[in-house]
Design a protein around this nucleic acid. Structure first.
Lengths: 192, 192
DNA sequence: GTCTATAGTTTGATAGAC
DNA sequence: GTCTATCAAACTATAGAC
């Protein structure tokens, strides 16, 4: 019988993914052991391998989880009348994460670097973390009439977000992130 | 008798630091073993501990090496008549590193994240990697008459560089980096 | 200063009882 | 599906001969 549904806590598979996501965000992929993840998820170590054949398989599920989370955020931000307004909405969503970012960095950005450094099985997965964001940004810019420039604008916007998040963590200053997001809002305003 | 000076290759200590710097840049701190570093430096594993008491000590020496390298780059860029011209010079130096960045990311940025994720002994060392750069940027902006705004401008410039480098590696596109550096040059020009 | 051998621990992964 | 016990490999670090 399945272990989830109306009952108290999520099933073991989801608990493992969630625990892996958090541990990898805090300590990095290479430094996070399956034992740590299993303990945090309250699942016996040997049982992990029933749900995920390898550590690589588990992090692949974590990537999918991140993709679902960012897609949900994009859907939230999509509730706005104008394309530039929707981009402002997304920036507003980022502001809510500043406490997490100052502590452990951007979840997507950190995992992206980890994947680029990881072995040959994972090194091409990092672009997936940013694909949805980039496409959504580009779509908004295109709808705002930016034409062929839209893709470059999307990349620039994501680069600013990633750089601001990295520096925010490195300097342990949430103000760094909020200041840079202010600049981003100003930049968007100027594009109108 | 010392193992360096006019002879062929650097002494063992410097070889270890250089090998550690490269391996950590390629594969990350946590995933890089002392055995790998020792082999690349052509030093027996047991001998590493004569020069560095722990792996942490070795990465601390790598940090100092990075600080020396970035200081040398800043000195090169400092050869210019105007402060904004010197900032343009620095951007020009960054352009020369685009092949390395697209392959393994910004050496300072990657190590910075690794240090933030590492244990309590290293997590406060990452800001040292950026301190010299930030101070030098701020000095140039101040000399350009930007006053109290100078520090914020320095942080913004470094954030743009770091975000561009990260996305350049993530998307395996050197063009991402060069495009963003073009924007940075344009931004500096506009500040004049 | 240099190097071999190895201790002691942790890791990813498996076997097999229930 | 679940869990204990454990393997084989890799790791940081040390001991001790030279």
């Amino acid at each position: 019988m399945p272990d989830s549904l109306p009952s108290g806590r999520p099933n073991k598979r989801d608990r493992l993914i969630s625990a892996a996501r958090d541990a990898i965000h805090c300590h990095g992929y290479a430094a996070t052991s399956l034992a740590t993840i299993a303990e945090a998820a309250d699942v016996p170590l040997g049982n992990v391998y029933y749900y995920f054949k390898t550590k690589e398989d588990l992090v692949r599920a974590v990537i999918e989880d991140h993709e679902a989370l960012i897609n949900a955020t994009l859907e939230t931000a999509a509730a706005g009348p104008t394309p530039l307004g929707r981009l402002h909405n997304f920036v507003a969503e980022l502001r809510k994460q500043s406490e997490v970012v100052v502590e452990h960095g951007c979840p997507l950005g950190c995992l992206g670097q980890d994947l680029d450094k990881a072995g040959p099985g994972l090194e091409n997965e990092s672009r997936r973390l940013f694909a949805a964001q980039l496409l959504w940004f580009e779509t908004q810019f295109r709808e705002a009439g930016k034409g062929e420039e839209s893709k470059a604008l999307a990349i620039h916007m994501l680069a600013c977000i990633q750089g601001a998040s990295a520096l925010c963590e490195r300097l342990s200053s949430a103000e760094v992130l909020t200041n840079e997001l202010d600049l981003l809002d100003g930049w968007l305003h100027q594009l109108a």
